[in-house]
């Protein structure tokens, strides 16, 4: 089963555009990333620029409305994620606990929906999605 570990760093909701993580913290995190890799559990990982460089689109009555970041009402925001392949939620939590997190950071562990989680009629309606994912190939950007 796949789990997403969402890193939620307190204060990132008000970080300035162009804010970069501290080099020492990155080095510690890189070691942790390598341990995930060596255990064969790491599927994907990314860091996100602060919300001040992002945007939100809301759909009041189905019509899109764009709001530029930062988002003053947000109390906590995602700073990055890992996608891992493990045998249980407990194993996912054990991995999250090993992260070199600071006291301002929380990791949220969430299970990813698999096609097998859906009842037959929903699985049928969503059948094309697995093919789409295969086509998109999880290719990386530049």
């Amino acid at each position: 089963m796949r789990f997403m570990m969402l890193m939620i760093p307190k204060g990132y909701e008000i970080a300035e555009p162009g804010t970069m993580p501290d080099a020492k913290a990155v080095a510690a995190m890189m070691k942790y990333n390598e341990s995930l890799q060596q255990a064969g559990v790491l599927l994907a990982l990314d860091g996100l620029h602060p919300p001040s460089m992002g945007a939100r689109v809301s759909f009041p009555g189905g019509k899109p409305k764009v709001t530029d970041g930062p988002f003053s009402e947000a109390k906590e925001v995602v700073g990055g994620y890992w996608m891992i392949q493990v045998k249980s939620k407990e194993e996912a939590i054990e991995w999250a606990k090993r992260c070199p997190g600071s006291e301002t950071e929380v990791i949220e562990v969430r299970q990813v929906q698999e096609m097998s989680d859906f009842p037959p009629d929903v699985a049928e309606a969503a059948a094309g999605f697995a093919d789409l994912q295969a086509q998109s190939g999880q290719s990386k950007g530049s």
């Binding site: 990314d46 860091g47 996100l48 620029h49 919300p51 460089m53 992002g54 945007a55 939100r56 689109v57 809301s58 759909f59 988002f71 995602v78 990055g80 950007g141």
Partner: peptide, 9 residues
């Protein structure tokens, strides 16, 4: 609903 877009490092 509201959906958020964030550039990736």
């Amino acid at each position: 609903t509201e959906v958020e877009i964030r550039p990736v490092f």
